[in-house]
Write a protein that binds this DNA or RNA. Structure first.
Lengths: 91, 91
DNA sequence: TCATTATATTTAAACATATCAATATATAAA
DNA sequence: TTTATATATTGATATGTTTAAATATAATGA
């Protein structure tokens, strides 16, 4: 599948988009992501797996915890540009 | 709905993405879009309506023909950046 | 007016997806 | 070991989406 289509498929769901935006802030463990997106643990786990299979995030385990981060530079760029135009207060 | 989510929902379908990329080349009429995306006329019409409702494209009628164009500048920017890094031949 | 062409809408079928509860697995701590 | 905690997987349900055929509408020309 075309990379651009993969990226859009990955980000077209509210839960996944919220997760990825959260991860732009830096690496987070699943236990932090769950309360942030307010979905069941199984749901979050499934969407993280989907994001990983789409090539958007990568994970590492540290003891009992698993940390996810955004690994796709194009996604980082796209999302950073979609925030409000710089300087303006409330766009 | 958040604008970024709207954009990703609009572009996460192969038919719609292909249409929008085609329109980046400039305004096209529906009768040109149909053979390009190789879908039934009704399908193309429905997806164009969806793109319009998502705020990605706009249309104008000229006689019997209807012309569509990409109206969303963020979409133009995102898609132009997703093409191969400039200069390189086959990335 | 009537026929033709271009596009839009309706309908139905097939398919895909998100969600959660329950259960399984992995790791660490007692 | 056994227990507790963190995450992943499974199974079921509900919801949403894409598609094409058929039909409707809009515009033009004969």
């Amino acid at each position: 599948m075309k990379e651009s289509l993969r990226i859009f498929k990955a980000l077209c769901d509210e839960t996944r988009l919220k997760i990825v935006e959260f991860l732009l802030d830096g690496e987070k463990c699943v236990c932090e992501i769950i309360p942030f997106v307010k979905r069941a643990q199984s749901t979050v786990s499934i969407q993280l797996a989907k994001l990983e299979s789409f090539g958007i995030v990568e994970s590492r385990r540290d003891g009992k915890k698993v940390y996810y981060r955004v690994s796709n530079p194009k996604v980082k760029k796209i999302l950073s540009e979609l925030v409000s135009p710089k300087g303006k207060a409330k766009n």
